[in-house]
Write a protein that binds this DNA or RNA. Structure first.
Lengths: 216, 216
DNA sequence: ACAATTGATGAATAGGTGTTCATTCACAAA
DNA sequence: TTTGTGAATGAACACCTATTCATCAATTGT
């Protein structure tokens, strides 16, 4: 949000920063720009100006624009995974409780932020023509699926559910989650995060009727 | 290739076409290019070359690139709506049969074509920063939701189902459909259309257990 | 047959973008 | 203080892209 104040050249003391600091600063400016202007209209000028730095700064720290975008998508993925881990760490130790925590995490304010979702979709929109993006997105899905499969299997055992096709159920859940994100992004009458979360929980209740209290 | 020999024999009937014909030809070249290169890398040169025409042709028929892209998205939406109408027209006259037809249509070869899905996502990725795209996408969703609500209400009455929140159910169904599309686009082990359709049908079976035969 | 009309051309234009690199300058070690 | 290091600059460069427009030629009307 707060736009970085462009540093006056005259004002001393605003120079030099560790590499890691600048890189993160530039990545955040990139996310901001993609959310505001879209991926196609995001230029290095926009990014460096928003960061209050000079023209060549991105090439200095990332070598190329392509590299900046790859690292931006990577950052987004790590940010997402971290939110999941954090949610699981705080979750109760029951399968249902952990599953609920995992799926609620998708709709937390810090994850389902409209800006971040816009950036996710911007990259998804290029997935077919950019193998580098596809790789990162596939890795994220793969990791998510592994966690989800584990929890679903545990819950099926825990509740002695029969006739549940876990792989297909996992597909349904991940698809539902992604589709709800699209709703958050597009919907006219601003679908709210809470509403999306409720929809997801309601679905889980219907699949696991013995554990409704965990999904309420 | 050989060309520009200014003799009378210029080429076979390669000149002149009605406005509508050229426009459609250019829109199709645009879709092709977006699917192959992405929205950001699609240039007017690519489009006109792919159509076998000259530089200025897009500006002649569409005035601007922005216009071409808007009309391309519009075409995609009309194409989609048409597929839905066609599916409904051929459907049996029962609520369950019509619902099944509507949702199966999302995964027909001509609709869930990997190229078209890539283009949909390319535009969705810019929805936040381009009001014109957002408008078209919202209209499509709105129309879809109206049809879906009608069918769901009819089916609830038909089967005397209780405790069904139709608006929420409609949200779940549309989200699931969109999410399955993302799976088709990204998934590593190529999720197949048939698999996605089965997932959707299986979900409908779970919601409407008295009508499973319509969803099998 | 002869204009008139209009689709189509493609070279030229103007504006913008990513990248480079010689140079500057903050900072800390000697 | 002096000096070495490397972060940061920003003008210059080469490239690309959307758009224009004078020109051409196929079709239509008379």
């Amino acid at each position: 949000m707060s736009e970085s104040i462009p540093v006056s050249v005259k004002a001393p003391g605003r120079r030099r920063a560790a590499k890691g600091v600048r890189k993160r600063q530039l990545i955040e400016a990139t996310i901001e720009s993609i959310a505001k202007r879209g991926l196609g209209e995001t230029t290095l000028s926009h990014v460096s100006t928003a960061a209050g730095l000079s023209q060549g700064i991105v090439n200095l720290h990332f070598t190329s624009k392509e590299n900046l975008l790859n690292e931006t998508l990577n950052f987004l993925r790590e940010d997402y995974d971290q939110a999941l881990q954090q949610a699981l760490a705080k979750a109760p130790d029951t399968p249902a409780g952990r599953l609920a925590a995992l799926l609620r995490a998708d709709f937390k304010a810090s994850v389902a932020d409209r800006k971040k979702i816009a950036v996710w979709f911007a990259f998804w929109g290029e997935v077919k023509s950019r193998p580098a993006y596809r790789k990162i997105c596939q890795d994220r899905v793969k990791n998510y699926n592994e966690i989800l499969h584990g929890l679903l299997n545990a819950l099926v055992v825990d509740g002695q559910y029969a006739n549940i096709d876990v792989p297909q159920l996992a597909d349904t859940i991940t698809s539902l989650a992604d589709g709800l994100w699209l709703n958050l992004l597009i919907s006219a009458r601003g679908m709210k995060r809470a509403e999306a979360e409720r929809t997801m929980m309601q679905y889980l209740c219907s699949v696991f009727p013995k554990h409704t209290e965990a999904f309420s």
